[in-house]
Design a protein around this nucleic acid. Sequence first.
DNA 1: CTTGAAAGTCGGTCGAC
DNA 2: GTCGACCGACTTTCAAG
Lengths: 153, 153
Amino acid sequence: MQHLDDTDKKILNLLQKDSRLTTKQLSLKLNLSPTAVYERIKKLERQNYITNYVALVNAQKIEKDFVVFVMVQLTQHSTKNIEDFEKKIMALPEIVACFHTSGTYDYLLKINLKNMKAFRKFMIEKLTEIPHISNTQSVFNIHEVFNYTALPV
Amino acid sequence: MQHLDDTDKKILNLLQKDSRLTTKQLSLKLNLSPTAVYERIKKLERQNYITNYVALVNAQKIEKDFVVFVMVQLTQHSTKNIEDFEKKIMALPEIVACFHTSGTYDYLLKINLKNMKAFRKFMIEKLTEIPHISNTQSVFNIHEVFNYTALPV
DNA sequence: CTTGAAAGTCGGTCGAC
DNA sequence: GTCGACCGACTTTCAAG
């Protein structure tokens, strides 16, 4: 499968919103047989268009809805420093995303915590303990307008 | 359920990584009966700890792995302007996340596109068409170190 | 691609502890 | 809270067109 046809795209868009849709339900939406839908999904999985299926958890309910974006500048950009830094970052469960970025700062981190107090503790005890950091800037999330896991196909 | 016990937390952590685990598979990992696991999952769903189940799609395969973070400054912060802006932003499928933030800029947008050319087109034809924007700064993703959908419970 | 059928598994419900 | 048993619905595979 070199490119996806409209039916494949519809399947991907639907499953990105709700992976619990059965082949039967999908077959009704797509005017296809359940077997055909099944074969297409298996193909999408086999060819790695679909990487995995996950449950999404409510950050508020588990008290992890205080979100901060921390931009980090490194002292030097040697391979060793970068590998060192990324390794240390990966070990911190509060950091849910880490992007190596262009611009003034080298990394953009997304942190999920309980509240400001937890953030203060995290910064003092964990992030500033990591070597090679020269400077950070924290941007606080005031309101999450939206944050999709789905990509438009 | 006011608070989650260790078993609930384990279930949430496991399902956040792979929602296709059956109650039977979970029961073996947790030394519990499948029914007990089933009841706990249903409770977690009912009480909105688990909001939904989704398929994750490989951004590379669908040519949407060029990621840019755009920070946006508004001209004025009136309620009308904010509502207006957020509404327009929501209508753009390239924008996969939008956070109202503290600091110099008012919004942090995450954009998924094919390449730089598509980004240029997006900026010229779509983003700058939106009213009330005074200033933007684009930060390009050089490398995604990690980007989890799972939160540590 | 379709239909139909078969086998095995799972989700979901039940009564009982 | 736990468990074992049950049944219908589903997934998954296959044959045939």
